[in-house]
Simulated scan of single mutants.
Amino acid sequence: MRINCRTIARGVAEGEVLLTRDPISFLGNVDPHTGIVVEPQHELYGQSICGKVLVFPYGKGSTVGSYVIYQLFKNNVAPAAMINLESEPIVAVGAIISGIPLVDRLENDPFELLKSGDRIIVNSTGSFVEINKDQS
């Protein structure tokens, strides 16, 4: 199944979905050295975002969050790709400078289509997400 979306940062990545309905503040929620979510109140607390297709509604917090995304990339613990309901500048800039594919505004609600553990392809260059529904 192909789902059209808006491209924010170009690229193609395949990976396992890690989904949260909680917004993410990369400055404070995620350890830039390990890629582990360290905010105890966050739904993903204790989980690694490394190599995952990180699905979350939007980013929040300080503009330094863009640099934290870049640190994740430099430390080889960044997500493979990211999907937002609506991207905002902090996450967009971080993804762009790090070369992490980022999309938003999917034509279908990703929280209804996806679950953690699904394997998907994010082709932000082609403005689509590909979901293999045979895996369920």
Rank of each mutant, 00 (worst) to 15 (best):
S25M: 05
C50I: 10
I49N: 00
Q135C: 01
G117K: 04
I69K: 02
I120E: 02
K74E: 15
S98G: 11
P40F: 01
V30L: 08
F128K: 07
S25H: 01
R10D: 05
F73R: 15
S25K: 07
K60G: 03
H33N: 13
Q135D: 07
Q71R: 15
S62P: 08
I36A: 07
D22M: 07
I96C: 04
L72V: 05
I121P: 00
I100D: 03
N4W: 10
D22R: 10
V12A: 00
Y58H: 14
S98N: 12
H42F: 05
L113K: 06
V103P: 06
S66I: 07
E39R: 10
K133A: 08
S87H: 12
A92M: 03
C5H: 02
C50G: 14
R21I: 05
N4R: 15
I90P: 05
E43P: 02
R119W: 10
A9Y: 03
G28C: 03
V55F: 08
I8G: 01
P23Y: 03
M1T: 12
E16V: 11
C5D: 03
M82G: 11
R105D: 08
I49R: 00
V55N: 10
E16M: 12
V37E: 01
V77A: 12
I36C: 05
I24S: 14
Y58M: 11
K52D: 04
E14V: 13
E43D: 13
I24V: 14
L19T: 03
V12C: 02
P32T: 10
A80Y: 03
V103H: 01
G61I: 09
A80P: 01
L102I: 02
P110T: 01
S87A: 15
K133D: 02
N84M: 08
G51V: 03
I100S: 06
R119D: 02
V53L: 07
T34W: 10
F26R: 11
S66Q: 10
Q41G: 13
N84C: 14
D104R: 08
D118T: 06
I83Q: 05
I3C: 02
S116N: 03
V30R: 00
G65S: 10
Q71M: 15
D31Q: 01
G51L: 03
G28N: 02
K52R: 15
F26S: 05
E14F: 02
I100W: 03
L114T: 04
N123A: 05
E112P: 00
N84D: 05
N4L: 11
G94Q: 07
S136R: 14
K60A: 10
L114Q: 04
R105M: 09
N108R: 15
D31E: 11
S62E: 10
N4T: 12
F111R: 08
I24H: 05
S66F: 04
T7K: 15
T7E: 15
M1E: 13
N29Q: 07
T34V: 04
R21G: 04
G59L: 12
L18Y: 01
V64C: 00
Y70G: 12
Y45R: 00
C50Q: 15
E39N: 14
L44N: 04
F128G: 06
I121F: 02
D22T: 04
N29I: 01
L27F: 09
N29H: 14
L106V: 10
G61L: 11
V64I: 12
L54D: 06
S98F: 11
E88S: 13
T63S: 15
L113S: 11
C50T: 15
K52M: 04
K133C: 02
Q41P: 00
S124N: 07
V64G: 01
